[in-house]
């Protein structure tokens, strides 16, 4: 990843983090809110087929853990899982139009939330209401998918470098 796109990604990540921690909670409908960092993670999985992309996904998750006040590793695992899944999928399926990206983001959101919930169940043994969680899971996924076109557009601008410049390298 070149310096300029990396700076752009960094800036967008920080912006998304600030939005996610300071702005989105105030606008959240009930407890449902979009996961902006996940969209960046999906973008990395689709367009950054490199170790840097994997590290980026881990960093996104780690940042999310840090700022969400949860145990470190929870979102980091979820983001890495999403990156890996999207990466493997995009190697076999052509995901380039808006609708397919929306679907990928929706499924990625569901996958990440499910993974996080499983990890919570295993490591933290917290009691919860599965029915309510399912509602949040789907609500979050829909909102995240709805926000993804705008975030993808910003990321594409920040990227500048040709698509998959270092992919399959």
């Amino acid at each position: 990843m070149r310096l300029r796109p990396a700076l752009g990604f960094g800036l967008l990540t920080v912006t998304a983090l600030v939005l996610q921690t300071a702005v989105v909670p105030r606008l959240a409908i009930g407890r449902v809110s979009p996961d902006l960092l996940l969209i960046i993670c999906v973008y990395l999985g689709l367009h950054r087929h490199s170790v840097g992309g994997a590290l980026g996904a881990f960093t996104l998750g780690y940042l999310q853990d840090t700022f969400s006040g949860t145990v470190a590793g929870l979102n980091a695992f979820g983001m890495c899982l999403v990156f890996t899944t999207v990466y493997l999928t995009s190697r076999r399926l052509w995901v380039d139009n808006t609708v397919s990206k929306l679907v990928v983001v929706f499924l990625a959101s569901v996958l990440k939330t499910a993974a996080v919930l499983v990890l919570i169940a295993i490591f933290l043994a917290t009691e919860w209401n599965w029915r309510a969680l399912l509602g949040y899971l789907l609500g979050d996924a829909v909102l995240t998918a709805a926000c993804s076109p705008a975030v993808f557009a910003l990321l594409s601008r920040a990227r500048r470098a040709p698509v998959a410049e270092d992919a399959y390298a």
Binding site: F58, G73, A76, F77, T84
Partner: peptide
């Protein structure tokens, strides 16, 4: 790399 990072995340967790 992704697998390694997943393991790191689990370790952290």
């Amino acid at each position: 790399a992704s697998g390694s990072l997943l393991l790191v995340a689990l370790l952290l967790l």
